[in-house]
Nucleic acid binder design. Structure first.
Lengths: 227, 227
DNA sequence: GTCTATAGCAGGATAGAC
DNA sequence: GTCTATCCTGCTATAGAC
């Protein structure tokens, strides 16, 4: 371990602070208006530092954008994932309904503040629609693992002869509903006239579980289908 | 009626042609990369005309963007709407399943070519996530009317005592699934490894109808719910 | 590490000839 | 209506002082 004098430490701290502020402000601006609509000038102004620091800390603008995903978006998605996993593991008796509910809650009532969630959503929706390098990161490190986790959980309830594709599809549909009610919040609010307060979220979760559960082709459900 | 000489007519035609080409190319570029990422220079180069013509025909860049929605996006959404309405009207006997199927088909197998649909999707997803003036146009002229139409169709099957909000929610969920499988095509393809060819679309429609129908709180369904 | 200053270029918009 | 030429603003990136 190399010993550091006070100056070095202070510089490191100061540097980290600037770096952090840059990431924080960059994320917010990129989320709100997208990569091209935001200038480095604007980011550095918000972070109260000079323009050159973006270059110093992140080489260039594009890499700052990617670093926002690496150091902020992905860890946050992993926090959501962790909440989901924990609440599923805590269940005495797992059912498809409870799994869906845990998933819906992790997103809607999860560990993120409203502000954090807004950024989270805005960043990923852009990538879902027009993938860049950042999407690869997100897909590999969060989306696919989550999909597989849910698959394993629900596969347990599926009838022996269930079509693998059917189950995949059901899970995608559940994701669809959850993502939709999360990621299309502006539209949902506009059409329903309701804002995403605690009450509305709680109702949404209930409804999502109800709607999703009774569409699932899992044990105990298939028998109920009308031919 | 004011008589027009050949020169005037030719000029009008030529003007309309330029205008049309500009809208066509602008739409494609805006859809692919978004408003800020595309320059007027690029649009005019693609449309094989000079830069000044954007100003001449549309005053400025922003208005060209809005005109893309007015003259291309909305009419296309109305074509989808028309296909849906027609196939619903043709039904001898309407059921919730058939209504959902008609809706899913109108979007997935509707009147738009793959290329048209790609543009259509990319343009609206941006607006769903970060609404601008263009979203107002889309919401007022297409999204809300469609929602109301579906509401009227399904309300017919709902039990007397059904909660209005519940039905709204169910419709939103159906929209959610349909929009999700349409508008998150890049992601769905990436996770399932399947491209949206005719076969995959047909399967998706079937699955959406199955999943959605058995989640609907409408007559004949509620009785099947496990308490 | 942070800053100021600036190079170098691309953007939207427009004037004025045809 | 269409075009070329040009204005001017704003951008990213960097050099060099501290």
């Amino acid at each position: 371990m190399i010993p550091k004098n006070d100056d070095t430490l202070n510089n490191l701290n100061a540097a980290n602070q600037t770096r952090k502020r840059l990431l924080e402000k960059a994320e917010n601006l990129f989320a709100q208006r997208g990569y091209h609509a935001v200038s480095v000038r604007e980011i550095t102004a918000a972070a109260k530092c000079n323009m050159a620091s973006v270059n110093y800390h992140f080489s260039n603008k594009k890499n700052l954008y990617l670093e926002v995903f690496r150091s902020r978006w992905i860890p946050r998605e992993q926090r959501i994932y962790a909440v989901f996993e924990e609440s599923v593991d805590l269940l005495e008796k797992s059912t498809p309904e409870l799994v869906i509910k845990a998933l819906a809650r992790a997103y809607l009532e999860g560990p993120l503040s409203d502000e954090e969630f807004r950024r989270h959503r805005q960043l990923i929706v852009r990538e879902l629609n027009n993938p860049t390098e950042a999407f690869e990161l997100a897909a590999d490190q969060t989306l696919r693992p989550l999909f597989k986790k849910v698959y394993r959980l629900l596969e347990f309830f599926a009838p022996e002869d269930v079509d693998e594709d059917n189950l995949s599809f059901d899970i995608l549909s559940i994701f669809g509903i959850i993502l939709y009610f999360n990621y299309s919040r502006p539209m949902v609010s506009r059409i329903t006239g309701k804002s995403y307060d605690a009450d509305f979220k709680a109702r949404l979760i209930e409804q999502m579980v109800r709607f999703s559960s009774y569409g699932l082709s899992v044990k105990g459900r298939t028998a109920l289908k009308i031919k």
